[in-house]
Design a protein around this nucleic acid. Structure first.
Lengths: 120, 120
DNA sequence: CACTCAAGCAACCTTCGGTTGCGTGTAGCG
DNA sequence: CGCTACACGCAACCGAAGGTTGCTTGAGTG
C-alpha cells in the first residue's frame, strides 16, 4: 500500500540545489535567478534552469518586474510536496517499526528455544 | 537554520526507482537484483546499479546465499534516512505555516482597512 | 556431466546538473 | 536623447547518472 507519489514533484525536491533554492525562496519570500545565485555555489544559468524545473511542476510562479523575473513559491503546491515527504516518511517509519517489533519477537523466541531454526 | 542533511543519503532516496526498491525491500524483508527487477519497470542491471548505490551509502547489506545475492535493509541507516525526510518536511511545514499566518494577518488588516496598501 | 539461471562486467545511449559564451532589452544616468 | 550597465534568455559543450543490450562466469540441479 505505497502512498501515491507524484514522481515529478518528488524529483523536483530531490535535487540538493533545488532543495536549497526552495529553502531560500521560503525564507526570503521570493527572488530572481541572479539573486538566488549569489548565495548558491552554482551559476545564474544553473539556477535559471532549476527555476524552470520548479516552474514546470508548479512549485513556483514567475512574475516579471521591470527587467527582472521574480519567482515566488506556490504555497499550495509546496504544501503538497511537503505532504508527500511526510507521507513517505510516515509510511516507512510505520513499517520499519512493525518489522523491528517482529524481529525482536523472533529474537526472543529463538533465545527461548534455540533448537528451532528456519531453513527457508 | 536548515537542518543538517546528508546529501548522499538524500540523493539515494531521491531517485524514484530507488524509493520503490526500498519500499519493496521494506515490505518483503529482502531480495535479489533479479527478484526486485521482476516488479520494476527497469532491467536487472539497472536494479543492480541502484543496489550498489544503496549499499555505498549503507542503506542495505549484501549477503551471498548460494549463487544469489540477497540484499536487506540496514534498519539503523534507513531510520536515519526517514528522519531526514521528517526533518526537512517539518522544517518546511513550520515555515510555511508561519508565512501563511502572516499572509492571513495582512489579509485581515487590508480587509479591515482597505485604504492602507503596501507599495513595497 | 550437461544444463540452467543469477551475477557480474563492459560498452553504449540519453538525460540532467552545470559551465562558458553570446546576444538582447530595459532601466537609469549624463 | 543616447550611452552604459545589468539581468535575462539562448546555445553549445562537458561530466556524471540512470538505463539498456550483450557477453561471460560460476554456483546449483537434472
Amino acid at each position: 500500500m505505497t502512498a501515491v507519489i507524484d514522481d515529478d514533484l518528488w524529483s523536483a525536491i530531490g535535487d540538493p540545489t533545488r532543495r536549497r533554492m526552495l529553502d531560500m525562496l521560503l525564507a526570503a519570500g521570493g527572488g530572481t535567478a541572479t539573486s538566488l545565485s549569489h548565495e548558491l555555489p552554482v551559476t545564474r544559468q544553473a539556477v535559471a534552469k532549476h527555476l524552470g524545473v520548479l516552474h514546470r511542476v508548479g512549485l513556483v510562479h514567475a512574475a516579471p518586474i521591470g527587467r527582472e523575473m521574480c519567482y515566488r513559491l506556490d504555497d499550495a503546491q509546496f504544501a503538497r510536496a511537503v505532504a508527500q515527504l511526510s507521507t513517505v516518511g510516515a509510511s516507512w517509519d510505520a513499517r520499519l517499526q512493525r518489522i523491528t517489533q517482529i524481529a525482536e519477537a523472533i529474537q526472543r523466541r529463538q533465545d527461548a528455544d534455540p533448537g528451532r531454526q528456519n531453513k527457508t
